[in-house]
Nucleic acid binder design. Structure first.
Length: 276
DNA sequence: ATGGGTACCTGTCTGC
DNA sequence: TGCAGACAGGTACCCA
């Protein structure tokens, strides 16, 4: 489910309210992707620092006497969402993690359990480091330029859409936004990444940034169950030009949009507007 | 190193 | 109505 815009919208929706809150209890439900890696009770009495995002991961620093004392790395997987509320009510079957604090409870709901909550001594240590190392540039990092994207794509021979999804060149564009950005840049998703010219890489880098920024401004995409930590739905999905629209006439040229499968994932594109 | 495929898990929708 | 099968926003890991 959640790509960069959804994760960032989620972060923004609870970051300020939880900042400075004191952990009073931790509840762990069904196992997620990895074990938590710490005795839950040992987190009690720590203070939540400023929540950060890296790619589609969230990092919740936990402080002890004002000093950073580890933190929780969270991932929403395909179906996860976080809610922050003063009185969350009883945990349902899909509520797998509660961080109960003096200001309210941060609750992870994740029906498919592809998500994760993992404790690490620091962001650059242990499990967090293992998961975060090797991630590509942030799309809004000034270092993410057309030149950088061009050089990175030159080193690979996979289809450009798969290169974008792999997350080691640029993070944050998942299946929806990779499809949308390739449409905006006029590039066929099947094009071999090393055949993308410099000008097209420039356009693609700009399209990735623009697509993610626009989605962010609209609160992300809610296809079925995404909500931010206030329970708000995203509004980007109504603006999708290709995603989920197989057979629908392209709104730029009228050609029916196509659906193909790449790397076991659906890809949507316009065979006329998007060229190899 | 790269690329391709599998695995994880559950809910929803489609077609017979 | 019931049921099998396809499909879903992600990514670590195994193997060639």
């Amino acid at each position: 489910m959640p790509e960069l815009p959804e994760v960032e919208v989620t972060r923004q929706s609870f970051c300020e309210r939880i900042h400075g809150a004191r952990v009073t209890a931790v509840r762990v439900g069904k196992p997620l992707r990895w074990p938590l890696g710490v005795v839950p009770d040992s987190l009690v009495a720590r203070t939540v620092g400023e929540v950060a995002r890296r790619g589609k991961y969230l990092w919740l620093p936990l402080e002890d006497d004002g000093r950073e004392a580890g933190g929780l790395l969270m991932h929403l997987g395909m179906s996860g969402s976080l809610a922050f509320s003063p009185a969350p009510g009883d945990a349902g079957v899909h509520d797998h993690f509660d961080l109960v604090t003096s200001r309210g409870t941060l609750r992870l709901t994740d029906p498919r359990r592809f998500g994760a909550v993992v404790w690490s001594a620091s962001r650059s240590d242990g499990m967090a480091a293992k998961l975060l190392n090797g991630l590509g540039l942030e799309p809004f990092d000034p270092a993410f330029t057309g030149a950088h994207l061009h050089a990175a794509l030159k080193r690979r021979r996979v289809a450009v859409k798969l290169a974008l999804l792999s997350g080691d060149i640029v993070v944050g564009a998942g299946n929806i936004y990779a499809c949308e950005a390739l449409f905006a840049a006029g590039i066929d998703p099947r094009t071999r990444s090393d055949r993308i010219s410099r000008p097209r890489a420039e356009r693609l880098a700009a399209a990735i940034r623009d697509t993610l920024a626009r989605a962010l401004a609209l609160g992300g995409s809610t296809l079925r169950d995404f909500r931010d930590a206030h329970g708000m739905e995203g509004r980007f999905q109504a603006q999708a030009r290709v995603y989920g629209r197989a057979g629908v006439p392209c709104d730029a040229c009228g050609t029916p949009l196509r659906r193909i499968v790449q790397g076991q994932r659906a890809t949507f594109f316009c065979p006329t507007c998007q060229r190899r």
